[in-house]
Simulated scan of single mutants.
Amino acid sequence: MSEYILALNSGSSSLKFALYDFAGEVVQRKGEGAIERIGQSVGRFWWRGDRRLDRTAAFPDLSSALKALLDLFQELGLEQLSAIGHRVVSGGPELREHCAIDEHVLQTLRASLRFAPLHLPAEIAVMEAVSQHWSKTPQFACFDTAFHRSIPELAARYPLPRNLWQEGVRKYGFHGLSYEYILTQIPTPGRTIIAHLGNGASLAAVQDGNCVDTSMGLSPTGGIVMGTRCGDLDPGVLLYLLEEKGYSANQLERILNHLSGLLGLSGLSGDMQVLLAARENDPHAAFAIDAFAYSVRKMIGCYLAVLGGADRLVFTGGIGEHAPLLRELICTPLGALGFVLDNAANQTGQRRISRSESPVEILCIPTDEDRMIAEHSYQLLRQR
């Protein structure tokens, strides 16, 4: 008997989704889609499955977007969902395991907004809207932070007063669902460095399947250079902006999360595709690209030290999977450390992009966070 699981990945103005059919040991992806530009005058709704849909319409809020999705599933005869799984970036210090969503979980998430202010408000809003349209369907929260529970205290703890650690100020890590999926594609993880590179980007050091360190910390703002997020900063920069420039907390948040990273460095865009297209004629775009590659290389060097070497490096995420130039800029200077790129394989997007004699295997593997959301939700459903 088939059990349909809907995986939801929500943003501030978009809702991505994928539908999976669980029939015993066989799992089939029935389709995927997105509702984009929610709250704007003209939105877009697309679906790719046995039937394809791509249309424009106004979606004033999340409730109207979910109603459109429900209508589609009714047309397809798929409205009887067994469960709905949500990607949740962070549950703060209290929620670090995938779980069923109830009022207590919602209250805890509302109290944890500071741990992921860019993501949690929209994620909570979707959970609440889903309960209106699928009131009898169980919902499950799948946390990006769950994968990183294995990080030892030595790596997770900041050198701050002890009471802050006890209050939950620590490294949580993110992109955990992506890292989980990548490990399902590697038979023997050994010492693996995974680079999830997209608009939001992070790296993880994995030892025998367990995360031992990761670049993002308390929130998804830290770590390497990202599309519009700054990554790691000297805390003195923040004190300077507060004391000398008179910035408020809201102004700081806007700078750190929305105006920095590739956008801040280039003055053009936080979108890597735009920067790559402008690279030849715009020195600021070229500089931003080089800065991104440099920050990734530095983190790889850190994790070589953490792991005592590496058996493989895996690229994933939108940039990691689709930008061969970035992979080249990252790996070529690391040749003396055992990362020997096969330029032809890299340009054509092969799974293995290192030369046969390379001491470190370099792979490019598409991620599938939706699959992990669906699988965790299915397992939690079976445990009820």
Results as ranks from 00 to 15, higher is better:
residue 284 H to D: 13
residue 325 L to M: 15
residue 326 L to K: 08
residue 260 S to A: 08
residue 75 E to H: 01
residue 32 E to G: 09
residue 10 S to Y: 02
residue 244 E to V: 09
residue 252 L to T: 09
residue 378 Y to P: 01
residue 220 P to A: 03
residue 99 C to F: 05
residue 358 S to W: 00
residue 199 N to S: 14
residue 66 L to I: 14
residue 35 I to C: 11
residue 151 I to S: 06
residue 214 T to D: 10
residue 135 S to R: 13
residue 234 D to C: 06
residue 15 L to N: 06
residue 322 H to Q: 14
residue 4 Y to N: 06
residue 214 T to I: 08
residue 173 G to V: 14
residue 381 L to H: 09
residue 306 V to D: 08
residue 255 I to Q: 08
residue 306 V to T: 14
residue 154 L to A: 14
residue 333 P to D: 10
residue 297 R to S: 12
residue 113 L to Y: 00
residue 130 V to H: 00
residue 359 P to D: 04
residue 21 D to V: 05
residue 92 G to P: 12
residue 274 V to D: 15
residue 21 D to C: 15
residue 246 G to S: 02
residue 164 L to G: 03
residue 118 L to R: 07
residue 163 N to P: 00
residue 368 D to S: 08
residue 103 E to W: 03
residue 231 G to P: 07
residue 132 Q to T: 13
residue 144 D to Y: 01
residue 49 G to W: 10
residue 341 L to C: 03
residue 94 E to W: 01
residue 382 R to D: 02
residue 370 D to R: 04
residue 163 N to L: 11
residue 339 F to R: 10
residue 363 L to G: 09
residue 337 L to K: 15
residue 189 P to H: 05
residue 189 P to Q: 09
residue 326 L to R: 03
residue 291 A to G: 08
residue 186 I to M: 06
residue 373 I to P: 06
residue 114 R to I: 12
residue 226 M to N: 13
residue 282 D to Q: 13
residue 82 S to L: 03
residue 59 F to D: 00
residue 116 A to Q: 06
residue 145 T to D: 08
residue 24 G to K: 13
residue 148 H to C: 11
residue 298 K to E: 14
residue 172 Y to M: 12
residue 314 V to F: 07
residue 213 D to S: 15
residue 72 L to W: 02
residue 24 G to V: 12
residue 115 F to C: 03
residue 297 R to A: 13
residue 255 I to D: 04
residue 351 R to G: 02
residue 298 K to Q: 15
residue 365 I to P: 11
residue 191 R to Y: 02
residue 321 E to L: 07
residue 234 D to M: 07
residue 119 H to G: 06
residue 236 G to H: 00
residue 111 A to H: 12
residue 332 T to A: 15
residue 384 R to V: 00
residue 31 G to Y: 01
residue 134 W to K: 11
residue 154 L to M: 12
residue 184 T to M: 01
residue 278 A to G: 02
residue 318 G to E: 07
residue 86 H to E: 08
residue 109 L to Q: 04
residue 322 H to V: 08
residue 216 M to E: 06
residue 141 A to P: 10
residue 167 E to A: 15
residue 305 A to H: 13
residue 99 C to W: 05
residue 214 T to V: 15
residue 65 A to I: 07
residue 81 L to D: 09
residue 288 A to C: 10
residue 167 E to C: 04
residue 82 S to N: 08
residue 62 L to N: 15
residue 156 A to M: 09
residue 9 N to A: 04
residue 16 K to P: 07
residue 84 I to Q: 04
residue 6 L to R: 03
residue 41 S to K: 15
residue 164 L to Q: 10
residue 304 L to F: 11
residue 327 R to F: 11
residue 98 H to R: 02
residue 24 G to H: 10
residue 268 L to V: 15
